[in-house]
Design a protein around this nucleic acid. Structure first.
Lengths: 213, 213
DNA sequence: TTCTGTGAACGGATTCACAGCA
DNA sequence: TGCTGTGAATCCGTTCACAGAA
């Protein structure tokens, strides 16, 4: 197996997979890197190069079989199977995450949820009984969890992440507004809308300065 | 003014600003790029280089004045002022966004909200009356909106984005799972937890293949 | 001495451009 | 002819390393 595929490439694959799946529902059977690129705002060369890390999926002169390529990508990403997730933090945000209908159909099953608030512990949301966060370490031993979701206040996030990591969780989706530190073998993705907004205002401000309104 | 500061640099500034603000609350007066880097998992050289695009904020032999640098960064990013936002889509997700307490204190004020569902239109959430999305274009003319938040189902997202762009909105925070196309002068940030999960499974799967469990 | 600011070197990702297959 | 797959060239961000200020 070829070592070190750039992480940016891995992050683009789900985007391709999603677009291809969408195309199959429209009955599309073949796409060229050109078309797919136009659809996604990516250069055709980018797509071809990315795919070339994993194999040769296209037919010269024709393009890619949409369904075949979608399936290949899902296999590469591990999207053909289901994954178990544990949610830590069931405040307003955590509750929204629990109720969100977009994870399950994609094979991401939240099977445990934890909180520190006695008023929240014991409640049942979306079929899941909220447990005491103190039970988190023990629960992680008992039941295999692939991915942790962190939705606790910023001040507790690092500690929760440490607990997850110590229990062997290697993938974390973090909603807390912190610059979390974790071992290199752990993959973290941050969902941070405020940070996203704060970088866009730079451009808004810049435009106003030069009077473009 | 120097042209073309890399976008990645702009995206790191809010991270620095947040850490510095945090440090000020701890009474910290001076930091070196070394310390700040350790805190954020970034190299000191990275921080110094990033800052050098905007000026000379440090003192050789000492480091940076925490409060001063925090203020400078906020000024650069436009975080000293308040910004008006309009939310489009007040389903479960949109409602969570409206109720989320993290935007307002950072100067991001959601002042309008729109939906297509007659049962939702007219409701009041967080002091805001939900309007009919059909009124969106007119409302954008009437009231200045800096940033649009898109939280509609995927199939309507592109159309909503187009409407926002046509009305002159230049910054969009998109929660819909689509690869949106927009003019280059418009800045879009995507919040897409499923995509984030789908790229992490690659590494989970890879580890399992080589038997690391 | 310590740590910033920065040109130069480096490294890695993107794009180019073309050989080769359908 | 059309479009893939891919080495080579290019571009661009990161890191190095050091001069210089406190």
């Amino acid at each position: 197996m070829p070592i070190e595929i750039p992480e940016v490439v891995i992050e683009r694959l789900p985007v391709y997979a999603r677009a291809l799946t969408e195309l199959t529902t429209h009955g599309r059977e073949v796409v060229s890197s050109q078309e797919l690129g136009a659809l996604l705002g990516v250069t055709p060369a980018q797509i071809r190069k990315d795919l070339s890390y994993f194999g040769r999926f296209g037919k010269q002169g024709r393009g890619y079989n949409v369904r075949r390529l979608a399936d290949e990508l899902k296999l590469i990403l591990g999207l053909e199977r289901e994954w178990t997730l544990a949610l830590v933090g069931v405040g307003r945000l955590g509750e929204a995450i629990l109720s969100y209908g977009g994870f399950y159909p994609q094979g991401f099953h939240i099977v445990e949820a934890f909180d520190a608030d006695p008023r929240t512990i014991g409640r049942v949301i979306g079929g899941i009984t909220i447990k005491d966060v103190a039970e988190l370490p023990a629960a992680l031993v008992q039941r295999h969890i692939d991915i942790g979701i962190v939705a606790v206040p910023a001040e507790h996030a690092q500690q929760v992440i440490d607990t997850l990591v110590n229990a062997g969780v290697r993938s974390i989706l973090n909603y807390a507004p912190i610059a979390a530190r974790s071992p290199t073998h752990v993959h973290i993705r941050h969902i941070d809308p405020v940070l996203a907004l704060q970088s866009m205002t730079y451009y808004l401000k810049a435009r106003e300065l030069i009077g473009v309104k």
